[in-house]
């Protein structure tokens, strides 16, 4: 209530010309002015396009990868090795975006990075991956997978652990190999967790990682890396002495509403086709 619901009341500033000094009660009421401005902002279309592409890629590429990783991890027989993999994959979750992006800059450096050294040794030409608009999204997705791998594995592994062992025995009797058990027992066994995580992912579809975006953003890759959040950040916090909190909030309200609609749709679809739902 305190940390999630109460701050929602602050969103009223989207309908005001908010002044930090005058506060919510003293600021001028401007109605839907900020929303109108958003809809008529010629740059908004580019931002929405970049945001949606990135968000869809995050769901389409990241989500299945995390499920597959957990399924394969479950098949590892040596418990110590399995434990080590799980711990190592979980570690990046605790590393800040700033550190992860710095690691990427080092690894992909066009002059001293290991990747470019390999490319050059194999006869290729050094590439400044961080400056290529076409490489921004793959790098972002890679970082997303890297960071979320272990965290999601913990959730799915917990689901897998709760699957009744007798189901595996029955599958064996029916002639299933390891692959068959994975497809016909493990995957359906964690379907509730998978669908829950999928709905949460869809809910976060417009919530790209702003820290990561701002750190990866540069003049060369701006064509793909400038998203709603980076724009709102510029408007709200880095403008020339006029932090426009109201406009930033208006954009975020629209973003949240769209995400909420997507969650409802995903929940309905999950209920209809997978007979499970989040709420």
């Amino acid at each position: 209530m305190l940390f999630k619901l109460l701050p929602v009341g602050g969103m009223v500033i989207a309908f005001q010309d908010y002044s930090a000094f005058l506060g919510i009660r003293g600021s001028e009421w401007v109605g839907l002015e900020n929303f109108k401005r958003m809809l008529t902002d010629p740059y908004m279309l580019t931002l929405v396009k970049n945001t949606v592409i990135l968000a869809v890629l995050s769901v389409v590429c990241v989500f299945p990868f995390l499920v597959i990783f957990s399924l394969f991890l479950n098949e590892v027989r040596f418990q110590k090795f399995k434990g080590t993999i799980q711990s190592v994959s979980f570690l990046p979750y605790f590393i800040s975006s700033a550190v992860m992006v710095s690691i990427m800059y080092t690894v992909l450096s066009p002059t001293s990075g290991i990747v470019n050294n390999l490319i050059v040794k194999m006869g290729g030409e050094s590439v400044n991956f961080m400056a290529k608009p076409e490489w921004f999204r793959p790098i972002y997705i890679f970082l997303q997978i890297w960071q979320m791998l272990g965290y999601n594995a913990v959730i799915y592994m917990a689901g897998i652990a709760s699957i009744n062992g007798e189901l595996y025995e029955a599958a064996e009797v029916d002639g299933c190999g390891r692959w068959g058990k994975m497809i016909h027992v493990t995957l359906p066994g964690i379907s509730t967790s998978v669908i829950t995580m999928l709905i949460i992912s869809i809910g976060n579809i417009f919530t790209v990682d702003t820290d990561r975006i701002l750190l990866l953003y540069n003049a060369s890759n701006a064509a793909t890396s400038d998203v709603i959040q980076s724009y709102v950040y510029r408007i709200a916090f880095q403008s020339l002495g006029f932090p426009d909190y109201s406009y930033g909030t208006a954009v975020n309200i629209v973003k949240s509403l769209l995400a909420f609609i997507l969650v409802i749709i995903a929940n309905k679809l999950a209920d209809k086709y997978a007979e499970t739902r989040l709420f």
């Binding site: 060369s220 701006a222 400038d226 510029r234 408007i235 880095q238 403008s239 020339l240 002495g241 006029f242």
Partner: peptide
């Protein structure tokens, strides 16, 4: 005027820089 300039520059300046860079690097 400052308020309007501040908001316009937030999108125009960054886009100008991005496009000019794109011309220079050949994108």
């Amino acid at each position: 005027e400052e308020q309007r300039l501040s908001n316009l520059i937030a999108s125009v300046y960054n886009t100008e820089v991005a496009r000019l860079t794109s011309f220079i690097v050949g994108n």
